[in-house]
Write a protein that binds this DNA or RNA. Sequence first.
DNA 1: CGATATCGTGGAGGTTGTCAACGATTGAGG
DNA 2: CCTCAATCGTTGACAACCTCCACGATATCG
Lengths: 147, 147
Amino acid sequence: MNLGSLADDAGFLLSRASGLVVRGANAVLAEHGLRVRQYSVLSLAVDAADGISQRDLAGALGLDPSQVVGLVDELQAAGLVDRRPSPGDRRTRLVVATARGCEVRAAAAEGARADVRRQLGALTGAEQETLRALLARVVTEAGSRGD
Amino acid sequence: MNLGSLADDAGFLLSRASGLVVRGANAVLAEHGLRVRQYSVLSLAVDAADGISQRDLAGALGLDPSQVVGLVDELQAAGLVDRRPSPGDRRTRLVVATARGCEVRAAAAEGARADVRRQLGALTGAEQETLRALLARVVTEAGSRGD
DNA sequence: CGATATCGTGGAGGTTGTCAACGATTGAGG
DNA sequence: CCTCAATCGTTGACAACCTCCACGATATCG
C-alpha cells in the first residue's frame, strides 16, 4: 500500500467526491433554474422563519459576504426571496423566502436528495449516515476553530 | 431532527469540507510555489515511473483535458516536469517528473499531509481511515459508472 | 484507401474564490 | 454629546476554475 499515492489521500478524495456530487446536483437543479449555491441560500432562507442576514448566510455557507450579494440578487430577481429591513439594525437586510421560493425549494430538494442517493449509491444507508456524521464533525470543528 | 436542513445534507457537507481542506492545502503548498491542482498533477507524474499521458492525468483527476494543458505548462516552466514523446503513439505526450520535481513533491507532500491531519483533527485516526475508505468507494464507483 | 476515433491544444463564456475598498449604521469610551 | 472603531451590505478587480466546442495531427478499423 503506497501511502504517497494521490488516490489514497483523504484531501484529494474529498475534493474529487465533492466535485462529482456538485456536478450532479447542478445538473438536477438546473431543471428548477437553480445552481447549487443558489439552492443553498434558498434553503437557509426557507428554514429561517424570520429570515436570515446575509452575514449569517455567508458564515453558514463558508462564503465571502460579497458572494452572497449576487446570489441573493439572482434569487430575488427570480421572485424566490425578498430582502427585508431588519427591525433592530438598519444595516442588516434579512433574506426571507417567498411562497414561491418555498415551493421551488421543496421541489428542488426532492431531486437533489435523489441525486445524492445515486451518487452515494456505492454505500449502504448506514455507511452514508456514517459519512455524513464524520463530515459534519469535520466542518463544525473547523468552524469552532476559526476556519 | 430536521431532515430538510442544509447542515444535514451529505452533498453540502462534502462540498463544505472539501472547500476547507483545499483552502488549507493551497496555503501550505504556496510555500512550495504550488497550488493543489499543480501538486496533484506533479504527484501523479512522480508516481508514474514511465510518465503519464495528459489524457490519463485528466481521467485520474476528473478534469477536462484542456485544463491539464495549462497545469503541465506551468509545472514545465517551473522545471518540475517534462513532456516526452510517447514511444508508441506520436499523438500522446508523456508527462514525467524531473529530479527537482521529485524533490519538490516530497517536500510539499509532507506539509500537505500535516495539514490534512490538522483539518481532520476532529476525527480519530480510525475515523479518518473510515472516511478515506468511504470516499474512495464513492469515487471509484462513480468512475466505473461513467461519472 | 477512407471513415471514425483519439490526443493535445486553443479559445469562449460563465462560475467561483479572494481581497480591498467604500457608504451607512451601530456600539463603546471619553 | 461626540468621536472612534467595528459591522453590514455592496462594488470592483483579478485569478482560478469548469464546460464546451473546434481544430490539426495521428491512430485505428473496415
